[in-house]
């Protein structure tokens, strides 16, 4: 399945947001996720299904002023 993650196309096989984060080796606690411009709440990571060509934005905290 092709997903657009942070504007880059990736070929990844996963069913849910939770699966995707696991596949990407990302810790659920330190990321926030948008699916097609809508926020996915942390408690919904497991039940939110992904489909081909979904656009996913994954952000975290970085240094700033």
């Amino acid at each position: 399945m092709k997903l657009i993650i942070n504007s880059k196309e990736k070929d990844i096989n996963c069913n849910t947001v939770s699966d995707l984060l696991k596949e990407l080796n990302l810790n659920n606690d330190i990321v926030a996720v948008e699916l097609n411009k809508n926020i996915v709440h942390r408690e919904n990571f497991e039940k939110t299904k992904l489909k081909n060509q979904d656009k996913i934005e994954i952000v975290t905290v970085v240094g700033g002023g």
Partner: peptide
């Protein structure tokens, strides 16, 4: 302390600030 929000670096994820 202030922090910024940015896209995660999928190629080379550095140690997290948190």
């Amino acid at each position: 302390v202030t922090v910024a929000l940015r896209r995660v670096n999928l190629e080379n994820e550095k140690e997290n600030l948190l």
